[in-house]
């Protein structure tokens, strides 16, 4: 099976979908003349022409709304939001409209749209280095996906485009270059199914998106030290599939939740709550969470490195859990 990057996997899925269905089109900032901010859709304008992929003005609410209206009217837009930070300007469109239209009109209209939201950091400081996964995962009516492997990236992008509901597709600039085996042919990976990536008996590490490859690295290092960690990749944040998580937790009785977000009130907080409620009978140790330190992202390289999670942060949290230590979350 070919080994390709996460970005190439996304590109293949988008290209396949564009070839398969003329109703699929891409809009976003700098997707044509600049030929794609991060390169995911590089070369598409040559292949598909400028009606199928179109540069949008810097008006995030504007083109998000344009996409939603076009989706209601029978098309299948893929909206690239440049980064998740700028997508904040489109929250009204996504939360009050895309997520509500099917419900509040009693099912008369559907909104088959995909919003691609790249996260990331890299000395970009406070406004350009954030994660808002929980904002979307909070909203009934949205489907929120954040694949952690190239295989899932390709299959879930195709599934997202074919889905009749609005899908928030969370990407990460730090995962684009991660490589993995990906079949050449087109396929879908179902939305709404978590995945046991690695079985283990000592601790269950729950993760998704960018943290998944980091957790995989951490698990390998832990194995060298004789610690057998299971990994459950959530892949979808709403609707959440807790079954593989609980199933693994039943065996390990210990959990670490690794997400790249400010820890308090994040997606990880929900997973922890579910483990306490749905998995209460199996808990043997405090559940730990790994995430950003709760500061606005600083610019200086050493500060940035200190406040973001690494494989070592996951390894450390696992050891704390195995030692039965309690976790204190610092907010100031």
């Amino acid at each position: 099976m070919p080994v390709i990057t996460f970005m190439e996997a996304l590109r293949q899925a988008l290209r396949d979908a564009m070839h398969a269905d003329e109703r699929v089109f891409i809009i976003g900032e700098d997707v044509v003349h600049y030929d794609s901010a991060y390169g995911v859709t590089k070369g598409f304008v040559k292949e598909f022409g400028d009606k199928r992929i179109r540069d949008m003005p810097i008006a995030e609410a504007g083109y998000a709304g344009l996409g939603i209206g076009a989706a209601m009217n029978g098309l299948r837009p893929v909206v690239e939001m440049m980064t998740t930070n700028f997508a904040l300007l489109a929250l009204d469109m996504i939360v009050n409209h895309a997520a509500k239209i099917h419900y509040m009109f009693g099912g008369q209209f559907t909104v088959p749209i995909v919003f691609r939201l790249p996260n990331g950091y890299g000395q970009l400081s406070a406004t350009h280095s954030q994660a808002f996964d929980n904002y979307y995962a909070y909203i009934p009516g949205l489907k929120v996906v954040a694949p952690g492997t190239p295989y899932d990236a390709k299959g879930m992008m195709r599934a997202a485009i074919e889905d009749p509901d609005p899908v928030i597709f969370i990407e990460h600039t730090g995962i684009y270059s991660v490589k993995g085996e990906v079949p050449e042919e087109s396929y879908t990976v179902p939305i709404g199914k978590s995945n046991l990536l690695r079985d283990g008996k000592d601790v269950t590490i729950v993760c998704y998106g960018r943290m998944t490859p980091m957790v995989q690295q951490a698990a390998e290092k832990l194995a060298e030290e004789g610690i057998d960690a299971a990994i459950v990749d959530l892949r979808t944040l709403r609707p959440l599939d807790m079954e593989p998580v609980i199933e693994s937790f039943r065996k390990t009785n210990r959990a670490v939740i690794a997400t790249e977000e400010w820890t308090s009130v994040g997606v990880g907080a929900e997973i922890a709550a579910r483990l306490y409620t749905e998995g209460f009978d199996y808990i043997d140790a405090p559940i730990w969470r790994v995430g950003f330190d709760e500061v606005p992202m600083p610019y200086a390289k050493n500060l940035e490195t200190a406040v973001v999670p690494h494989p070592e942060s996951v390894i450390d949290a696992v050891k704390q859990v195995l030692a039965g230590k309690t976790q204190r979350i610092r907010q100031q």
């Binding site: 504007g62 709304g65 939603i68 209206g69 029978g74």
Partner: peptide
Amino acid sequence: LLAVGIAYG
């Protein structure tokens, strides 16, 4: 904006 999108459609 939704109206604009329907027209775009």
